[in-house]
Amino acid sequence: MTEEINKEELKQKILEHLAKKPWQVRDLAKVLRVKKKELDKIVQELIAEGKAAYWSSGSTTYVTTKEKLEEMEKKRSGT
């Protein structure tokens, strides 16, 4: 139960960071002081839940919130 609460808290923290800018998971893991592998799994869950999404430059990939992504796409496409 405690673990679940901690995970939910962590998810919330991750989303707060992702809402500010797109992140490379490894950088976010350092900031949050979480093992990268653990963060990989949580980020996958957030993506599956539709709360986070990928942004790709073609060669490298970032993760951000769905809202931030839409905002970025609007800017990028010039609308």
Partner: peptide
């Protein structure tokens, strides 16, 4: 061309390379 963007296929994080034209 402006390179990079959303990967809007559910379940996928790669395989799509966003590209926009600045002469919309």
């Amino acid at each position: 061309w402006k390179h990079g963007g959303i990967v809007s296929v559910i379940g996928y994080g790669g395989g799509v390379i966003g590209r926009y034209c600045d002469l919309e």
